[in-house]
Simulated assay, not measured.
Amino acid sequence: MAGPAFSNPISIKDIAKAAGVSHSTVSRALADSPLVASETKQRIQRIAREMGYTPSAIARGLVTKRTATVGLVVTTIADPFIAEVAQGIEETALDNGYNVILCNCSAEPEREVACARALREKRVDAIIVTSSRVGSLYVPLLEELGVPIVLINNQHEGDYVYSVRTDNLTGGRLAGEYLLSLGHRYVAYIAGPPGAHSSKERLEGCRVALREHGLDIPDDWVAPGDGRTGGGQAGVDFLLRRSPQPTAIFCYNDMTAIGALQAIKRAGLRVPDDFSLVGYDDIAFAAFVDPPLTTIAQDKYTLGQRAMDLALELLNGQEEAGDIVLTPYLVERASCAPTSPGVSQG
């Protein structure tokens, strides 16, 4: 069976022939140039619409030296946190006449750099990277790729010129102070992916709050994790083997906390009766688990919005733009409860 027939796209040459004018006149009319008489301009534009003319982004790019596209490198499109950040990027891009090309790097540093290079080969005007595992190593790549690169929540230690991030130390501190206000003195932590800078900062922030009251999170109460539900489940199994056991668990992110909640229930224990539980991110799922999860919220949409705004500023030559830091906040739900001072489990 024959496949569908595709007609050639309508060109400026076709419109010029139909309108009985030169190619340059059509180009000016479609660009709304004042050099073309109003009546002629309207007639050419009407003919273009009737013929189904679509402007060529490639041709426009040859003239402007830009493609009005931005590349977005994400760790995984399955992460609900990333989805809300990407929404902020895409809506801001569209509002400014840009489109977004998505690339998934699976949280692998080598693949992340390969994605950035591949996007540049697509002639994107700027690149935004979420949760970068490369971070400051992009500095030498800036000259090589020749476009602005903006990082969101950089996971690689070191300074970077253009970034948007949430203050993880403050977020960890908020979690610690909240648990202290409920009387918890025995707090554990389920970590994020190995080497994740944000995980270290969130733990340190919580520890700072506890140390101000003569307390701490012992190293053997820091359970390894991976930022996913499986890591949260394994983290609880790890902590249940500790003696004494903590009364509260602070988790690297909400996906970790949701896994931890499942493991606590599986062990025949209850949240918040036996363990208070605090997540991080405030993804949409956090409000719908049982019990609803208390968490430290990041403004995910604003992270994406500000990153896209920063990319646009750099494209417009506003080089003063740099490191943008957003403040997290506590969202109190039902996964935490008061405990008596001095009480531990096990």
Results as ranks from 00 to 15, higher is better:
Leu180Phe: 00
Ala188Thr: 05
Ile264His: 08
Leu182His: 02
Gln245Gly: 07
Ala307Trp: 11
Asp79Pro: 04
Gly235Ser: 14
Thr302Leu: 09
Glu319Trp: 14
Gly346Gln: 12
Gly61Thr: 15
Leu137Lys: 13
Ala267Gly: 11
Ile12Lys: 01
Asp282Thr: 11
Glu143Ile: 12
Pro140Thr: 11
Ala248Arg: 06
Arg242Ala: 12
Asn8Met: 00
Val70Asn: 08
Pro148Val: 12
Thr229Cys: 08
Asn153Ala: 10
Ile264Met: 11
Leu239Lys: 11
Leu293Ala: 02
Glu313Gly: 15
Ser56Tyr: 04
Val331Asn: 02
Pro80Leu: 07
Val129Leu: 09
Lys13Cys: 00
Ala59Trp: 10
Ile249Ala: 11
Val325Ile: 08
Pro194Cys: 13
Ile128Met: 12
Thr294Ser: 04
Ile217Gln: 01
Leu315Ala: 15
Ala223Cys: 10
Ile149Ser: 13
Gly97Glu: 15
Ala16Leu: 02
Leu269Trp: 09
Leu330Pro: 03
Leu330Met: 03
Phe81Gly: 00
Gly97Phe: 15
Ala188Asn: 10
Leu179Trp: 01
Ile217Pro: 05
Ala116Leu: 10
Asp237Gly: 15
Gly176Met: 03
Ala19Thr: 06
Leu30Lys: 13
Val85Phe: 03
Pro194Trp: 09
Pro193Ile: 00
Pro244Ser: 04
Val271Lys: 02
Arg266Tyr: 08
Ser38Glu: 15
Leu62Thr: 08
Ile324Pro: 03
Ile127Phe: 04
Thr170Arg: 03
Ile101Cys: 03
Gly97Thr: 14
Arg133Trp: 09
Leu215Thr: 00
Phe275Gly: 08
Arg123Lys: 08
Ser136Phe: 13
Asp220Lys: 08
Phe285Tyr: 03
Arg207Thr: 02
Asp290Phe: 01
Thr294Gln: 05
Asp220Gly: 09
Ala118Glu: 05
Asp323Leu: 15
Leu277Cys: 04
Ala57Lys: 13
Ala267Ile: 15
Ile296Pro: 00
Leu240Gly: 14
Ile101Ser: 03
Gly135Pro: 07
Glu204Met: 07
Ala116Pro: 05
Glu112Gln: 09
Ala18Met: 02
His184Val: 00
Leu142His: 11
Ile190Ser: 14
Ala86Ile: 05
Ala209Val: 03
Leu203Trp: 03
Pro9Lys: 05
Gln262Lys: 04
Gly52Gln: 04
Ala5Asn: 01
Asp281Ala: 01
Glu108Ile: 09
Ser181Glu: 00
Ile128Asp: 13
Gln245Pro: 02
Gly268Phe: 13
